[in-house]
């Protein structure tokens, strides 16, 4: 993995801080409006996701870890950001389709779905058709979704280490069942950022530190 997303531009830093400050003061509408305004002014959806919303969510994680915000605030900001994403998502549907399909989900007990949600929206903006199943998706549902949707790419997201052995077992099941028809498999989330070596351990084809890296890797894997 050599591709690294670029640094934030000054205007993105300003927008991210404005957005976060609105949400820290429970001003969800103001937060949404500043993002919508930026989109109207021509900021690409991908830049909003990668260089505004994602850095904001990392900062929210940091604030929670040092006990400056509690879990209620973290959940409020996560929910508000999901609302923001739903509001701006139509901008992802304007690009041409590339004929490729992605199935994505968080398995087992994994509740942290925002990162994969962002990734699916960004792939959609890049022309992919995406089938996002969200948090706590049972193993059997992954298998049926793969059989029904016949995706080129499967994306699995794991935040907590508890989910890594489950990911390994699910990938083994999928490869055993699908054999030559198995889609390429990307894994991501905090566990794999912490220890990229785990990508090999679980039997995946690749990973990405963020959606842009994952998109770059997928472009190579799915020609």
């Amino acid at each position: 993995m050599t591709e690294v997303s670029r640094d934030m531009k000054p205007e993105e830093i300003k927008l991210a801080k404005t957005y976060l400050n609105h949400l820290l003061q429970a001003r969800r509408q103001d937060a949404l409006l500043c993002i919508v305004e930026s989109i109207k002014n021509g900021t690409p959806l991908k830049d909003i996701y990668l260089h505004v919303l994602q850095p904001v969510m990392y900062e929210v994680g940091r604030l929670w870890q040092i006990n400056q915000i509690d879990i209620a605030v973290e959940h409020y900001i996560t929910a508000a950001t999901q609302l923001t994403m739903a509001h701006v998502f139509p901008h992802a549907m304007t690009s041409k389709r590339n004929g490729k399909k992605l199935v994505g989900g968080c398995l087992g007990s994994e509740l942290h779905e925002l990162g994969l949600h962002m990734l699916c929206d960004i792939y959609e903006a890049d022309g992919w058709d995406t089938y996002f199943m969200g948090a706590v998706t049972p193993d059997a549902s992954f298998l049926s979704a793969i059989e029904e949707q016949r995706p080129d790419l499967l994306c699995l997201s794991v935040t907590m280490m508890f989910g890594v052995p489950e990911t390994r077992d699910l990938i083994t099941s999928i490869r055993t069942k699908m054999k030559k028809n198995c889609p390429k498999i990307l894994v991501g989330g905090l566990s794999f950022i912490m220890s990229p070596h785990l990508v090999t351990v679980v039997g995946a084809d690749g990973t990405g530190k963020d959606a842009q890296q994952a998109l770059n890797v997928a472009s190579r894997l799915v020609a």
Partner: peptide, 11 residues
């Protein structure tokens, strides 16, 4: 620095 500080550009 914490993990979030290492990966978080806004931080």
């Amino acid at each position: 620095t914490s993990f979030y500080e290492r990966i978080g550009p806004l931080t």
